[in-house]
Design a protein around this nucleic acid. Structure first.
Lengths: 252, 252
DNA sequence: GCCTGCCAAAGTGCATGCAATTGAGGCGCT
DNA sequence: AGCGCCTCAATTGCATGCACTTTGGCAGGC
């Protein structure tokens, strides 16, 4: 089912897609912090491809706003300003309200099950690594968006969610990002009940609280070596897509 | 003066950016219809660059949803399904409501002047080529978005506006796309007055009417030779860019 | 006459090579 | 010691080359 016939724009080119996904995950899990350098050769070497491909991947990620490309300079993970972060959250709120509006009362049993399974995974991950919690929380929203069957909406929600996630690295204090498993469950419940205004309100306040909890203070961190960081992301592991990830918790 | 401070993500790489802009314009003016083939060599030859660059540009445009990239196949201008078109308009409505909400009552005199000037241009173009009218109408919305000074919002509105423009080629009949100069003027007026609810309503109904006027019937057209079509777009011509227009502005 | 299978031409996927630019460290001058 | 210049390694920008895939046309068989 749901054969995502929609060829994921450029991404299907495989090698490029692999690198994009890996980097996205590394960024979302805050293994790559904002400002981290991404030299083309290192990337190529790490993923076993030529600079051409690494370069292309960086181009894609730059188009998504996850990395910054300055001419003749090494690419770096994007460092959104505080204002940009705020803007991103504003846009995200509108988009996700659109998502739940389209979804309210229209979820199939299978979809509800998938959502619950995902939240269960989030719950299970609470003891484990912070990075995993954050990733799962973000992926919950993407999973939700993917249920609208609107590729464009999925793309935009994903992008903006990643960007928001990126800002968490910058402006949020370590453990303040408990993206409320409870709130996710409440949203699912309201969606099932089909109470459109309520679910829109819930989503709004959920994201708003995440935003305000997150956007408090700068928390500078420097670090480490790119190659080491990327090691665990180098091979395209089993966790195919968001939907599947729900079941693999992979705490560490 | 050259250094366009806004490092437009990947686009600033010049050569790639030139091709992207040219193709976007060709698409928006319906010189390149949905489904038109875009072979890397022809593109490279036409713009005087190697396939590598043309390829990279196609990647960027694919990320924006303007072209479709199938593995080992010639890239083509995207052909959104009717449903995708509808989705795009829905998203666009939400985003542009956000724009005017942020802008209501906050426009500077210079900004208002710029908007009026643009609408005047739209008016003047009504006698001329259809393509120009369509482009100007779209650029009005982008100009508006650029006044929010939120790069992310600008990017998304631009993208989705281009996509909507693309669907007009497919599903709209020849002259049904008079994007209402009158409506644009009304929006400006309401923005100046600062009547937030009203301007949001205006924008909503404006876009909604464009959408319903547009999404009626398929209008197949086939066509011509790529190289001929692209000829007038090959050189980065005088008609500056939307982004430049925004420069007059500055709020927040 | 129409369908089928094969082959050349066209086009993409990717790596490599070379020129140009950057930035960092060393050296001399004050 | 501090400051500026200069040189060189690191890195990007881009083109070209080769292998592989698709395409479309042609020939031969049904």
């Amino acid at each position: 089912m749901a054969p995502r016939a929609t060829a994921k724009s450029a991404e299907s080119t495989d090698k490029v897609g692999v690198i994009c996904r890996a980097l996205r995950r590394a960024i979302i899990e805050q293994a790559l912090e904002p400002g981290a350098k991404l030299p083309e050769d290192s990337l190529g070497e790490r993923f076993g491809v030529s600079r051409t491909i690494a370069r292309h991947a960086l181009g894609q990620l730059a188009a998504e706003g996850l990395v910054e490309l300055r001419r003749n300079r090494i690419a770096v993970v994007a460092t959104p300003s505080w204002q940009e972060a705020r803007d991103a959250f504003d846009i995200r709120i509108e988009l996700e309200r659109l998502v739940v509006r389209q979804l309210a009362g229209k979820l199939t049993k299978a979809q509800v099950a998938a959502l619950n399974a995902h939240v269960d995974a989030e719950d299970a991950a609470r003891g484990g690594a912070d990075a995993v919690s954050i990733r799962l929380a973000t992926e919950f929203h993407i999973l939700l968006a993917s249920m609208t069957n609107s590729p464009i909406l999925v793309r935009y929600v994903s992008e903006v969610a990643y960007r928001c996630c990126l800002t968490l690295s910058l402006y949020s204090r370590p453990h303040s990002s408990e993206c409320g498993v409870t709130e996710h469950r409440a949203i699912i419940a309201a969606l099932v009940k089909g109470d459109e205004p309520k679910v829109m309100g819930l989503m709004h306040s959920h994201l708003d609280s995440v935003a305000t909890r997150a956007l408090v203070a700068p928390a500078p961190q420097r670090g480490r070596d790119l190659l080491d960081i990327l090691a665990p992301y180098a091979e395209e592991d089993g966790a195919e897509r968001v939907v599947k990830m729900a079941k693999v918790v992979r705490a560490r």
